[in-house]
Amino acid sequence: LPDDRSQAINLSSDSASYESNQGTYTGNVEMSQGSLKIKADKLTIVESERKVDTVIAEGAPASFEQQTNASEGVVTASANRIEYRIDNEEILLLNNAEISHQGSRISGDRIFYNGRKQTVVADGGNTEQETRVKMILQPQAAPETKPSTIKPGSEPATKKEIR
C-alpha cells in the first residue's frame, strides 16, 4: 500500500549481524512492513544515510507479498534472489523467478517489477542457455452464452440438399 513505507518494520530471524551500513539476518527470516511481507533464508538490509535503501532476500526460493493499493489484489512473488529498492518501489527477481500480478502469473529466469508504474518485464536473463518466460492468465468474466464449439464439417444445417 502507498503508506507501507511509513509503517514500522518488524523482523524476526534465527540470527543477525550488523556492520557498517548493512544488516544480515539468516535462518527463516520474516520481515513485514504494513502490507509488505518477505520470507527468506537470508535477508540483507542496506541502508544509506540511516534509511533503509535496499532489501536483498535470498532463499530456495524467497517469497515477497505486498498490496499495491486498496482496489488492486495482492502482488506475490518468489525467486532465489529478490532485490527490493524501497524508494522507487522496484523489485528484481533472479532465477526461478515467479510473480502473480492482476490475475496473471509470470515465471522465468529474470523478472523486473515496478510497483509505482505497475509494469512487469520478464526475459531469459543473461545466462547463455536461453530459458523461456511463461505467463498464465485466468479467463475473465463468465464465458459467453453460446459456446462456439461446432466442430467444422459437421452436418450442414439445411434439411434437403441435392445429392
Binding site: 492482476q102 512487469v120 492468465l137
Partner: peptide
Amino acid sequence: SIAPLEVSAQNIESLN
C-alpha cells in the same frame, strides 16, 4: 472462452 491463456516467450512485458 473458458480456458486460461498460457503464454511462453523469450520475454514478456506486462503493463497493467
